[in-house]
Nucleic acid binder design. Sequence first.
DNA 1: CTGTTAGCGCGTTCAT
DNA 2: ATGAACGCGCTAACAG
Lengths: 363, 363
Amino acid sequence: MHENQWLRLRQMRDSLLYLPGLFYSHAMGEPADHLKSIADLARLAGVSVSTVSRALTGKGALNKGTRARIQALADQHGFRMNVAAQNLRLGRTGAIAVLLPIGPERSRQLSDPFFVTMLGYLADALTDRGYDLLLSRVVPQGEEWLDAFIRSRRADGIIVVGQSTQSRALDRAAAHYRPMVVWGAGSTDNVHVTVGTDNVTGGALAARHLMERGRRRLAYFGAVSVPEFAARHRGFLDALPDDLRNGVDLVPTAMTPDQSFRAAADYFAAGHRPDGVFAASDVVAMSIMAAAAEHGLRVPQDMAVVGFDDIMLARFAHPPLTTIRQDIEAGARALVDLLVRRIEGQEALTVQIAPELVVRESS
Amino acid sequence: MHENQWLRLRQMRDSLLYLPGLFYSHAMGEPADHLKSIADLARLAGVSVSTVSRALTGKGALNKGTRARIQALADQHGFRMNVAAQNLRLGRTGAIAVLLPIGPERSRQLSDPFFVTMLGYLADALTDRGYDLLLSRVVPQGEEWLDAFIRSRRADGIIVVGQSTQSRALDRAAAHYRPMVVWGAGSTDNVHVTVGTDNVTGGALAARHLMERGRRRLAYFGAVSVPEFAARHRGFLDALPDDLRNGVDLVPTAMTPDQSFRAAADYFAAGHRPDGVFAASDVVAMSIMAAAAEHGLRVPQDMAVVGFDDIMLARFAHPPLTTIRQDIEAGARALVDLLVRRIEGQEALTVQIAPELVVRESS
DNA sequence: CTGTTAGCGCGTTCAT
DNA sequence: ATGAACGCGCTAACAG
């Protein structure tokens, strides 16, 4: 047949261009195919490219029979459309960028399990919506990094996980770029749209719990220059009666295990002996407990400890950690919902998620 | 001037199409621009698109003056080329896919800090090479998932982090797809190219260390159906004298905190009292220590514990964890080096990285 | 219901 | 040194 002759010709030409063996899988005797475009498939099926396009996308009217035939042919040859070309044509990228600003409050290695967990749920939620997840760690420099990224148009939208110390840069970008949502502390001052735990309430939960436990000499460990953590501190203080509030030690520290361990060790070495501690994250809480053990402090007898996040390891800390739980899965879903809505041009405003006290044996 | 008139016309048209304010950032008085393609920039500069292309890519011969002029114009308007279109034209995607097979041995939430750390270093290494990082969690189903992903051509190469139980699927794909590297256990049986710690040596280090500590009643905790962890177990056993080897308890468990905690709790509840334990990961080791504490076992007096990975939290475990350190950063760089080499068509074979014993107070 | 045509934004011959 | 023209692989009018 005419078609077949043409096909053989093509194969011969291809075999001159490509090394044999590279494009043929011998595993399971299944041939890898050379159909590189819908044009190839169209010729094979004896139809036009637009027909193939309609068949494969399911858009537009098409005869049931031809659609099925082309589908079958595609499956049989393992053909998949070139997503990049499709996206170019549709004026999109099909990807959402997840940016992790590496600020002073988290370690360079992203060692915080909270991030990973969030990343996992984001990956799921984005995949459900048909988006790819473009991961980018950014070391914020100057005020241009975000705008530069936006202008490169490598993604249809941006999810920033953690405000870090970049609220200004975020606001600046949000002023003219809509498809962006940020995980962090909401504020009426923010131009950028956030999803986040109600950190103030979370801090209050910790304060009330420690008071119920009869603790009076209190301390807060954590970052203070990052809105998210500052809000936890503020909520903690605000929930205390005046006489206690003024006596709360503020121990500022970066949120990495080693830095917070050092901060705690120094703090205890200086002779401080609080009987109740609120840590801005579980990782910090666990480091504090390690430092406490080295100084002979018993948890919870001598000192109660409350963390924040409820990372999976918290249950298996020594002792198991009392903490303020963040619903990370709900957060991830809210981030994606909001972002998609903004991409579609709808209004979508800041969302807060309720925290929950989880009592274990450290308090 | 002619040029200016045209420009004003364009702006007027645009202002009819777009809401004012959306495309103009009032922050810092800097106008957001409408230059959407090099064609726009070409008109503005009074040159052809190919000239702009040459100016911006730096490829091809071009007058120093015009190149500088176009560059300046681009900077001034904050213009960046459309990377997607560029990639389509160049027949590439500019992205590397990092696939995390969610097998039975790691939790659904990617909670293992090892993964995150690896991800961070991979992001750095890929960014250095100019690649985007496309993150994808895959739940392996059937034998087709990997081939299907490959055929979608969404990435120029693939890094699979963790063989999980998918060695067959990996081999199957590697038979006809070259730009793929896998983090995991190397083996002469593998068709796929791996980078990984020398797990056998790692297991042997743990065995010899426990013997030096005088421990004789030994146990191994971890997955056994995953090559990576199976190799640790094998290396552990092989380094022991015959009389000890046969007495080693094998406690199979998924590598999540909760599952390994349960396995350890059950094991201790059944009355087993090893004096030396080798855990296939630090997370498992920490769960074992938590379970041991609940059963009144003291670490290291009653039972020495050795982990694997040296995650950042290991230093702050209670007690600080002795472990077999993996050089994750070196691993990530090796993965990327190998992958890039294979993309460029060079031969590049499996790499092993030496593990290192880190002695702390749990042994 | 299907084919033809004209781009999406860029690189790259081939002219000039 | 620069421009015109074509094509990467796909979608979406517009015809028929």
